[in-house]
Design a protein around this nucleic acid. Structure first.
Lengths: 215, 215
DNA sequence: ATACAAAACGACCGACCGTTCGTAAAGATA
DNA sequence: TATCTTTACGAACGGTCGGTCGTTTTGTAT
């Protein structure tokens, strides 16, 4: 049997514990960070043996990567996808914006920004996890691009507008990208990270190849 | 002998190792965070026995608090004090602003914002350290107040100006305060932290008791 | 030289960590 | 039923951690 389901449609036992472990691990990582994630604590919290985790992931780092992917799936399903499928518009832009804030205030991740914390708190970890976080950051910049593009295309912001304005409008998103930048290899300075964000938004707002219909 | 100095003016042996340990610990904490700070690593990096550290600090938490104080002394001497002593003015405001950025780019704390990282990466630590970080945050807000007050008093910004403008002008300072807010006990949401910063700056810009000479 | 206190050391402790291993139960297949 | 794979378990290992203890070195003052 290679499928995830048993004959009557319920999840296989392994798949059930797999997602249970990921949920628990995400919860603990949200509180204590990916560095603070302890396999022992995850196992104890679930009433499961610690060694059993190694039947699903070959190492702690593999579980950390799975936790990141798990969180990204939640993020995509609950925030990104509804945003991209919705008709474009300023109201929609801010609806998404507010929905993201609501997401943080929801019970799922109470009062914390997981992605932000994951990046902030764990920029010292080894190769694979670090690279994965870099991918997450790139996705984040892509999401910012969509937001800024919407703002310009729909006339909320004129093309050529000082990107600082857009940056501030998307500030509560943008600061995440700015502050997350140090997770990347070279550990760019604060000034460099800020310049990178402004340059990114300037390109979105003024580059005719990005917004050809406005030139 | 109760003084720090020996007869010929050099530091006592204990005081020398004390500051050497603090410098090393600050360097490691800057890279790995206060949580990641390891007494063994500090001792090994200095070629010093780990047990000797307990002659200066009674616990790891005590050393962590000392590291925070040590960093704050550096911060005060190199950034805050020159800013407060200098004649007020917009140029001075931005000189301080830039000096702070230069500080991050200096060799002392290469490419990292220690305060930001200390807060971001270590909001799960126990009571005393957490409380100390809250004090640091309050100091930070005080520094923001000084900057915003300067901006208004010197005519760079009109009294009553939308505090968002001031917030953005001091953004690279302000985001730190915004993002640091979650270190406080109740873990306020992203939206709450942002609202707190804007409210703070609004009070500075409009409250006649804060800027009586403008009303 | 003697005495004394500060300072540093090395060995050791218990706790927790991630990981491995051999084995046993559970569930699907035949 | 018997067979075989998946899944889970408990015990144990090596390692690092923060912290303690008794001892020795170092520096100063008498």
């Amino acid at each position: 049997m290679v499928d995830n389901m048993t004959a009557d449609g319920r999840l296989l036992r392994g798949e059930r514990t797999r997602t249970a472990v990921l949920d628990q691990a995400l919860q603990l990582a949200t509180a204590a960070g990916l560095d603070g994630l302890s396999l022992s604590q995850v196992a104890d919290a679930l009433g499961v043996s610690k060694s059993g985790l190694f039947a699903h992931w070959r190492s702690k780092e593999a579980l950390q990567l799975a936790v990141i992917a798990h969180a990204r799936v939640q993020w995509t399903d609950e925030v990104i996808s509804p945003a991209l499928e919705a008709p474009r518009g300023v109201r929609r832009l801010w609806a998404v914006h507010n929905r993201r804030l609501d997401f943080y205030e929801s019970g799922a991740l109470p009062g914390r920004c997981f992605f932000a914390n994951a990046h902030f708190e764990f920029n010292e970890r080894p190769g694979a996890v670090r690279n994965q976080l870099a991918v997450e950051l790139r996705d984040w910049m892509g999401f910012l691009t969509n937001l800024a593009t919407d703002a310009v295309t729909l006339g909320e912001v004129r093309a050529g507008t000082d990107p600082s304005s857009i940056a501030y409008e998307t500030e509560s998103l943008g600061v995440c990208a700015v502050m997350q930048a140090p997770v990347l290899g070279a550990a760019p300075t604060f000034r460099q990270a800020r310049r990178a964000l402004l340059g990114h938004l300037r390109a979105v707002a003024t580059d005719p190849t990005i917004l050809p219909e406005l030139t």
